[in-house]
Design a protein around this nucleic acid. Sequence first.
DNA 1: GACTTCTCGT
Length: 427
Amino acid sequence: MMRFLHNLAKPFTSTTQPQINFPKHLKPTRINLSLKSYLKSNPIKTILLFSDLLRKKISAVDSYSLLYVVKACAKKSLATEGKQAHALVIKLGYKPIIFIQTSLMDMYAATTNVSAVHKLFDEIPNKNVVCWTSLISAYVQNQKSYRALEIFRQMQSDNNVEPDQIAFTVALSACADLGALDKGVSIHDLISRKPEFSEDLSLMNALLNMYVKCGDIRKAMLVFDNIRIKDVRTWTSMIVGHALHGQAEEALRLFSALEEENNSRSRKGRGTEDQLLIPNEVMFIGVLMACSHAGMVEEGKRYFRSMIEVYGIKPTLSHFGCMVDLLCRRGLLKEAYSFILAMPIQPNAVIWRTLLGASGVHGNKELAAAARSKLYELNASLVGDDVALSNIYAAKGMWEEKIMLRNEMTQRRTPGCSSVEVGKLHS
DNA sequence: GACTTCTCGT
């Protein structure tokens, strides 16, 4: 990636400037409109165009161009370029512009630099709900959901900032991440007091997902039924919810219902893209997961094929992983192995570990050794892999079914009970 | 300006 800044003036430090919005009279220039449009289609181009601009015509660089370039860095998680853009923001005196500040926070969150996010936040003189939400979201994005919820509470109690829909959405995803059902329920209570909030689909999807991840499938179904206009994410969350709770038939029934609805809409000639809920790659992960948990190998293969042939979705590593999991759970280790070898993309460590784990459960020494050597090749071998293999040898040799049985019981998450809370507590 | 769906070993 091209570096667009070489020698920067020392940043001046001023934290007391009042925040301002973009000057209304300053309309985005044509070049800024290009920067903005590339942001959507090809953020790298935004950065390249910006660096060009900086080289050829520095005077054309204004707060808008910087805003877009910061956003581009966030989208592409480019830490170095992002920092350079930040330095330029300071140099050009755009620090008080609150839109730029929140975009910078966003960029640091995307580049996993949470302390930089927090530092920026601290420097903002009059923090509104958007700044708070950016901060909370940064913690959630970087797997610090506990801290995120603390800050969410702090925002309300110490600073009297009322959460809006988006703040609640982010807080709910923190609850989902932690499996914190009680917290999620109390947020649900707060949301219920604002009837207009139930019209916000993102918020309702986050609520649904929270109940799914916290193991309350009944509440999740209630939320699902109460969402009048659903989107693909709504359906995906519910399908995944059923799958996670061992209700494979429910999950697949839901998927069929969605397909049926799409078909009938197409027949009625209302088949335009925006009126159909076309299953996407994430939804198929839910579908394959359901098959896997129910041991429905043939169905899983059928869905996998239909994903490719009917929906034109190119399977990703995740989908291949689901298929490997599906085969491994049923003990079809050899088939899983040849499936992996036939994959058009390079299998990752997780896939080999799935096979390794299953080889342990089913006592297949050869495939365990093969998987393990692949893991070595991938340079991703963990201590746990040695343990897994030695367990296999021990189990094969002198120990008895007891051990095998115990392995089987503890190595599998049992569908049908809340796998979430168990998983979270012991991770 | 900030937001929601993504399985898999120990």
